[in-house]
């Protein structure tokens, strides 16, 4: 498969499409980690995952692409958005989404990128494969999963179950041994809902020990 490597200077249409999609993915990923708005980050993540799904399509992995769209775009990002809302993260632009060691992180990330890219280019310069449509179709993949990979597949289902139970246990507050209930109400009682700086209308609810109240408050926040 490495015989007769075509020139890099005359890309095929597939390659052009892939590179464009890849550029979209990388660019949106960059925006995910640099944007100053939390919700925007989640949205850019959607773009990134979508671009990646396109990449999968180009690479003839259709089933994976659709699963990517379904699960990542459809489920995970929604979960993340729910998380954002449940933690009452500030909606909108906020200046301090980056922590103090941003420079260090940048250096480490750049170094990682440099090494990975160098090594990858060095190692797979001559790797080439023609793309054959149909190899990643649902039929092929399904046959493979339920013939060869059925045991890991079942194990994975158990894992999912365990994760489900774990998430429930972690989230619930009324299980002994689970996460402790919220701190008692402040001795001063609920604070008055004043404060000129806080534009949100929910300070009284923050002292409320009952968590289910909060998302509704959140959604009505000044956003």
């Amino acid at each position: 498969m490495t015989e007769a490597v075509p020139s890099y200077l005359s890309p095929t249409g597939q390659e052009v499409v892939f590179l464009l999609l890849g550029a979209v993915a990388v660019g949106s990923a960059l925006l995910v980690v640099t944007t100053r708005q939390l919700v925007h980050a989640a949205l850019w993540l959607v773009v990134c995952f979508g671009a990646l799904a396109g990449c999968y399509l180009v690479l003839t992995a259709e089933f994976v692409a659709w699963v990517q769209v379904l699960i990542y775009v459809g489920a995970i990002v929604v979960l993340l958005l729910f998380g954002i809302m449940l933690t009452r993260a500030p909606i909108g632009r906020s200046a301090d989404l980056d922590s103090g060691n941003r420079v260090v992180s940048a250096v480490v990330a750049l170094a990682t990128a440099a090494i990975l890219v160098t090594v990858v280019i060095d190692g797979f310069r001559t790797a080439y494969t023609p793309l054959d449509p149909g190899a990643g179709a649902a039929k092929e993949l399904g046959a493979s999963i339920f013939a060869t990979w059925v045991l890991p597949f079942e194990a994975l289902s158990v894992l999912l179950l365990a994760a489900l139970i774990g998430a429930i246990v972690l989230s619930r507050t009324d299980i002994p041994g689970g996460s402790p209930p919220m701190g008692p109400a402040p001795p001063t009682g609920p604070a008055p809902p004043t404060g000129p700086a806080t534009g949100r209308a929910d300070p009284p609810a923050r002292g409320d020990p009952a968590p289910p109240d909060r998302p509704s408050d959140q959604t009505s926040g000044g956003h």
Partner: peptide, 17 residues
Amino acid sequence: NVQLYVSGLLAGVLLIA
């Protein structure tokens, strides 16, 4: 600061790589 720890960890892995 966990992020600092992870930074150090990754930097070390990079050096080793």
